[in-house]
Amino acid sequence: MSEKRKRTIDHQMVCRQKTDKQEADGQKNSSGIAAGHQEKGGAPGEIWKEALDLKPDPQEKQIALLAIQDAIEAKRIRNIPSPAELIQIQLQYITPSFWALQGGLLLLLILLLHRLPGQNAELTDYLWWSSIAAAWMGVLSNGVLGRHFSCRMAELEQSCYMNLSQMWTIRMTLTTGVDIGILTVFSGGIAARTETFFGRIAMYLLVPFLLSNVCCLLMISALRSGRRKYTLAALAVITALLAVSPCVVTEAYTTAYLWVWFCLLVLGAAVFAGQIKSCYGRMTRGEMICWN
């Protein structure tokens, strides 16, 4: 039998003797366990109160606190911004011109909602302008995203240990979120004035918005040009023409062609999702940075 084990058993005996003595003296019930217990939800509440009296040994606690103090002194605090801070930072880097142009488009849409009802406008009249606005919103958003990849910015951002994917995600969420919010509200406005189902209007507006996003992402990833502004302007014209093209077809916005719109929406969403996935992949692998 090992020395430790022998010593342990000796002490077990000591413990047991103490307990026996205690029981013999009738002290067991005065220990507070059995006496005057109250029940909390059927549990012996007095015992839990007793349990709260358990305190660590002051010496042991002091030793632990000293060890923890050492760890605190050795600790180097790194600044990890919270999601709210990250959004705040990215908001600072979105140019005022973007907000001004978005505000201009919003103003245009509000004016349309107020003016057109007085001119006995039909659904196509609303959709003509709002589809152009939706397409331009997509171009503007992607213009903001494209700034990450112009003038070797991506390389610079990565060199500064910034998380390019994270920044891109936040900016995309912010700009696209604003656009979708505006389009949703405007869809509601058109639906109310033309007595059309809201979902149908939303679909008519989301299709040009998605398609312009697809075109712009293609431009960001395929074209390498220092003259981004001109490319964006050209894209704005092309996507606007594409967006109004259904208005030329008389029956394009009738119920009979709803399935076509639905297919375009699904197709556009799928292509857009694929493009985003591809962009993240290239960012992670570094292709986009070298390419930039």
């Binding site: 307990t19 205690q22 002290q27 005065s30 220990s31 507070g32 366990i33 015992i47 007793e50 349990a51 009296d53 358990l54």
Partner: peptide
């Protein structure tokens, strides 16, 4: 006794 309470719990 106090220790006993805790130990028994």
């Amino acid at each position: 006794l106090e220790r006993d309470v805790h130990d028994r719990l």
